[in-house]
């Protein structure tokens, strides 16, 4: 099992942004880059997913190096 570390909680941010945030972001006005607000919000969540998962990946690799276990077989 991938050992859960505190920084893994970051992964919940974009998920909550979609599952909890979208009902509140459900409006057209407040265009961002020409997109209706709700669509811009969703695109933002997708971009955030990518950034957060890259960060978590980097932190996990760093933690694996510190423990000297090579991060499993990968």
């Amino acid at each position: 099992m991938t050992r859960l570390r505190p920084h893994h909680a970051l992964a919940a941010l974009p998920v909550l942004g979609i599952l909890v945030g979208v009902p509140f972001a459900n409006r057209v006005h407040g265009y961002i880059f020409g997109l209706p607000f709700v669509l811009a919000w969703i695109v933002g969540c997708v971009l955030l997913t990518s950034a957060v998962m890259a960060l978590i990946g980097a932190l996990d690799r760093a933690a694996a190096r510190d423990e000297g276990d090579g991060g499993g077989r990968a």
């Binding site: 099992m1 991938t2 893994h8 992964a11 974009p14 998920v15 979609i18 599952l19 979208v22 709700v38 669509l39 969703i42 695109v43 969540c45 997708v46 997913t49 957060v52 998962m53 978590i56 990946g57 499993g72 990968a74």
Partner: peptide, 21 residues
């Protein structure tokens, strides 16, 4: 239709923890 853009992002988040196992 925007749902199509949403579910992949969440699936990839899950995949980070699920697929290595």
């Amino acid at each position: 239709a925007f749902y199509i853009l949403c579910y992949g992002a969440i699936a990839y988040t899950i995949s980070y923890f699920l697929l290595p196992v």
